[in-house]
Design a protein around this nucleic acid. Sequence first.
DNA 1: AAAGCTTCTGTGAACGTGCACAGTAATCCC
DNA 2: GGGATTACTGTGCACGTTCACAGAAGCTTT
Lengths: 332, 332
Amino acid sequence: MKRPTIHDVAAAAGVSRGTVSRLLNGDKYVSPAARVAIERAISETGYVVNRAARSLVTQRTGSVVMVLSEPHEKLFEDPNYSTLIRVAIRMLAERDLSLVMMMAGDEGDRERVVRYVRGGHADGVLLVSTHAGDPLVQALGSGGPPAVSVGAVIGHENVIPYAAADERLGARQMTEYFVRQGRRRIAMITGPMDTPGGIQRLEGFAEVLGRKATQRLIAHGDWTQASGERAMHELLERSPDLDAVFVASDLMAAGALAALRAAGRRVPDDVAVGGFDDSAVAVSTHPPLTTIRQPLAKMAQETMRLLFALLDGAGPVEPVVLPTELVVRESA
Amino acid sequence: MKRPTIHDVAAAAGVSRGTVSRLLNGDKYVSPAARVAIERAISETGYVVNRAARSLVTQRTGSVVMVLSEPHEKLFEDPNYSTLIRVAIRMLAERDLSLVMMMAGDEGDRERVVRYVRGGHADGVLLVSTHAGDPLVQALGSGGPPAVSVGAVIGHENVIPYAAADERLGARQMTEYFVRQGRRRIAMITGPMDTPGGIQRLEGFAEVLGRKATQRLIAHGDWTQASGERAMHELLERSPDLDAVFVASDLMAAGALAALRAAGRRVPDDVAVGGFDDSAVAVSTHPPLTTIRQPLAKMAQETMRLLFALLDGAGPVEPVVLPTELVVRESA
DNA sequence: AAAGCTTCTGTGAACGTGCACAGTAATCCC
DNA sequence: GGGATTACTGTGCACGTTCACAGAAGCTTT
């Protein structure tokens, strides 16, 4: 049995295609009588609009694509993505838009994404965790559908609107907390230095410590737990007398805790540990992590709002930067 | 500037639409000369096929929808979803299919999903974490596009093909491990009893312990960390002399560890703790969790393979059940 | 009473593609 | 050398919708 078309609905309601279409698209000029007849016809026939046909004429697709720019093996280790996806699905659903997911981990992926977007298969683009210098951003460039990002895209802050946490503020909050506690040798494990979280959390750290933030006290990770563990070992070797470490993500902090335990350091007695994110992992470690809460859901919401503004044809929109908050648990 | 169409490509290559279409769709009858001319024309014009137009005539959409059937607030707390999404995106991309995400947490969501699927907007459906008696399954019913599930859908095992871990086997492996270690009072924290993981892990547990698996030693959780903590407190109150607990997920086990610590029990000396999943959280707890590894990536792959078989018009396909594996760490 | 609004309706064209079909030229088989 | 087969190509139609336009009917204004 064939799926009913707008023709069938029109026939059943005794009106023309045009009137049905007007009702469907919220046009004001539909008489009350026609309205009820059509609504009954729709529910009787079980009619659902054919998006392909609509797309063909409107030049819109009714979908937004989320592009995840992490190498495959690392993707999603960070539980934060979950929140983004959840919020995005939800807010898109309210506008009857659907969420398409794509990865841009390697060259082939990127080409596929560019083809997809430039081919007009999405009305908007939602960039996630895009690193500095990612060729994807250039390729998407202008002329395509509007793009926004969760967190700034380095080098394109003025081109791609974003909602982000105040990374510098968060880093300062944690570092100042250490200072207030009387910690003397404060180290840091950063994220990758081609991401805003990598760069700006280090900047905040350095702003507070000034000259005390020496290279010996800084090690770099790549957000993974394993890299946190590795970096902590490195720091312990270089600066055995450190008494605090600010780790730029909770997951890496979990790795750092393992390294400290292996080295026989007590947390927080010997070494205070501070994380960043306040993700689920922060409360499953031992001891639970003192960390910086990012308002992740709020960030996602604001990002979607920016996208909607662009979809609605608003002019240029301003980035949104949201405050972070220190959450004290037992690791510091 | 308008997007190039198949007409433009045909004109640039000096052939007709039909020939271009044949090349695009892998028809064998295209002369070598035409082939190179068209390929050059495509890259010169930057042509990308218009999916909407194609869908309209082929009645296919080129997309598969993943339906996440968890209440919103709980969704994604489980990091396992990440693996599913990653594998799905990847394998779909190889077939030039895209992944659309939808939630089915409440009645409104479910209706939207049904409309979407029955409206012909997806070529296939990928069910995730569908609970027993979910009306969605009925609503999708027959007549729609093929549906598969990661993990069995209770009550529809013979209708909806799935790939799953051998839940019973995993539960037996852990329970037998406890028994071999000489544990006497073995308790269990189950998942929700309307999911295969909830039911079958308990069955495996009971198979090994027989009459020793009493109600006093069994508590129920809902997969969340908080529920694991709550259930552990409950068990400690009911059966203070327990010396081992099998927890049906790592996340709940992390909660259980916190409860045990709060009660002053040492792990594994006083109480052995076993998890299930071998997810990322298993190595960030203290002590790291002895757990049952589910071959999650493999499960996802097999599920996709089943879906592809159905999309290719294969007859009925058989469910796939994959073995689990005991991973010994320090909690037991 | 004519002219101009407002409200509502129907109709034809267009969106870009795949597919069935018809048709052409070359090759092969006896 | 005539018929059948193979390799390839072009054309018209259909898919289901939106949109611009024309027009009808009722009401208000001049």
